[in-house]
Design a protein around this nucleic acid. Structure first.
Length: 523
RNA sequence: GCCCCAUUCGUCUAGAGGCCUAGGACGUGGCCCUCUCAAGGCCAAAACAGGGGUUCGAAUCCCCUAUGGGGCACCA
């Protein structure tokens, strides 16, 4: 039954032996892989990871990465989806060699433009006894399912039309009943396949059903389209989500029926919710410890302020690992080392904390001016007017502190720089953490102002010098003095370091804030 | 209900019969640095799901159980 020499049976468990296969070494075919999303909505984060593994594999082998659009579900088609899908892939740095907008020698790359091909090959299957027309209506099938559930018996299509007499068939045709084409699955026997990630996979054909290949509307189902397209696009390795593993026998039968060279299959594990319960779903978005929603769609990750560099590294390092205990690596480094069989077959929870850590790592690696440039649109879309020079000066201070590119985080650290006007903070804020009385505090603020006013250059080093001297002259602990100044100058408990922050506020404005705070305390 | 797959610290993982006293990372806790918060440095707690085999020797191979996950459409 399994005729391909490449896909020989190997004794023992898959886990143990899957790396002995030499899958690519023994394959004479040039590496061509594809990512084949359906344009029914925005790209799922797990989908991006699957795309990423395909891309890594293609680049590692100097192969070809194809983007194919599986728009065979007319009911769920979303015209916006394709654009968003491509945006998401490009954001992550996954460029495709063939597909929409770039073309290629195996097109068209959109399935709805290939309908004739599927119909032709579906008919070929019927003519050669591998498939048959079935005339049940969706309502009849629904009825059948209900009876099965009530009876507790076997589920699935009962194969009523598998062996129709020619006159029965003619009668249905004469009636004008719509028909589908179904695959004739073997009634017994076993399928045995070596999956590059999952290892040995075995299915008993007896429990499988006759899946629909061509729908009544003339569109193919995934099963037919996948095999026909992967054949005519010369795909060498099918790297897809493990959700498909259950339908592998259908595809396997199709390959056998057509007699085409079978690609190597690699089923990548799914991404589970952070709590490990169930796969990530946009219908039931997961939440973190604080009750915040964890994004599921790639465009939500972008909007949440994640860097594509961090997302790439994080996704690559989930289910696959670099080796050498190295956690941070570039796409180029990953390409050099990538090995399909090194993907862990176990489903993995999405560890959002680790993504946040990666994001911090990559934010810190940015050129500060680049950070400012990337931050700008987030601030603007939150309604802030951005002074580019100020933001550029602020960026290095923000850099070790930000977890994401977000207006919210920037404001938490530096909102006092963006305020339209800055009235003196209320007393309780000014005196927060201060042990002395208001008069002492006011005196301290005034002497800080005097020290700063006399400075030749208003830079961090000089500011630090005079303020430390002022603290000593006042007989105050630096800690106490500086937090008093922070309160008066920013109204915030948490800010970037004071000495670096003062030049951003500016000398005049700083002196004004100190004076007004002192006045407020006096009154 | 049926089919398939998996199971190593809370989480992501290393592990290919002896290099395992089970390694790394995130997170957590402590200490250091320190004007707050970060960043950084150091340290710590934390795992082979359970039970049977095979073997001189098992996290690793086999079987059973349990648990988790995926799938059972004229969706992909």
């Amino acid at each position: 039954m399994v005729s391909s020499g490449r896909l020989r049976a190997v004794p023992g468990s898959g886990r143990r032996h899957r790396k002995d296969l030499g899958l690519t070494a023994t394959s004479p075919r040039p590496v061509r892989v594809r990512f084949a999303p359906s344009p029914t909505g925005s790209l799922h984060i797990g989908g991006l990871r699957t795309a990423l593994y395909n891309w890594l594999f293609a680049r590692h082998h100097d192969g070809v990465f194809v983007l194919r659009i599986e728009d065979t579900d007319q009911k769920r088609y979303d015209p916006q989806a394709l654009r968003v899908l491509m945006e998401s892939l490009r954001w992550a740095g996954l460029d495709w060699d063939e597909g929409p907008e770039v073309g290629g020698g195996y097109g068209p790359y959109v399935q709805s433009e290939r309908l004739g091909l599927y119909q032709r090959w579906a008919n070929w299957l019927v003519e050669n006894g591998h498939a048959y027309p079935a005339y049940e209506t969706p309502e009849e099938l629904e009825q059948m399912r209900k009876e099965q559930e009530a009876g507790g018996g076997k589920r699935g299509y009962n194969r009523a039309h598998r062996d129709l007499m020619p006159d029965q068939r003619a009668a249905f045709e004469a009636e004008g009943r719509p028909k589908v084409i179904r695959l004739k699955m073997p009634l017994e026997g076993e399928m045995l396949v070596q999956d590059a990630i999952q290892g040995e996979v075995r299915f008993d054909y007896g429990v499988l059903q006759d899946m629909v290949l061509l729908k009544a509307d003339g569109f193919p189902t995934y099963h037919l389209a996948h095999v026909v397209d992967d054949h005519f696009m010369a795909i060498s390795h099918v790297i897809r989500a493990v959700e498909w593993l259950s339908s592998l026998p259908v595809h396997w039968q199709l390959w056998q029926a057509f007699g085409w060279e079978i690609p190597t299959y690699a089923h990548v594990p799914v991404m589970l919710n952070p709590n490990g319960k169930g796969k990530m779903s946009k219908r039931n978005p997961p939440r973190d410890a604080h009750g915040n929603i964890i994004p599921v769609l790639v465009h939500d990750y972008i909007a949440a302020g994640y860097l594509s560099e961090a997302a790439f590294n994080f996704l690559a390092n989930n289910s696959w690992n670099f080796g050498d205990d190295q956690e941070v690596y570039t796409p180029q480094e990953a390409v050099a080392r990538f090995d399909l069989t090194g993907i862990n077959p176990t489903n993995a929870a999405l560890q959002i904390d680790k993504l946040d850590w990666y994001n911090g790592v990559y934010i810190r690696r940015l050129d500060p001016l680049d950070l400012a440039r990337r931050l700008r649109p987030f601030l603007e879309s939150a309604g802030y007017e951005v002074n580019v020079d100020l933001l550029s000066a602020l960026a290095p201070l923000l850099q070790p502190r930000l977890k994401r590119l977000s207006a919210e985080e920037v404001m938490a650290y530096a909102g006092f720089l963006f305020a339209e006007d800055f009235p003196p903070p209320p007393r309780e804020v000014l005196l927060k953490g201060f042990k002395g009385d208001a008069a002492t505090a006011g005196t301290a603020l005034r002497s800080a102002g005097e020290a700063l006013a006399g400075l030749a250059a208003f830079d961090a080093a000089q500011i630090e010098g005079v303020l430390r001297a002022a603290a000593e002259a006042l007989g105050m602990k630096p800690k106490e003095f500086f937090s008093l100044l922070r309160n008066a100058l920013t109204g915030q408990e948490v800010t970037p370091p004071l000495f670096d922050t003062l030049p951003l506020i500016g000398r005049d404005e700083s002196l004004r804030r100190l004076a007004e705070a002192a006045a407020a305390l006096a009154g």
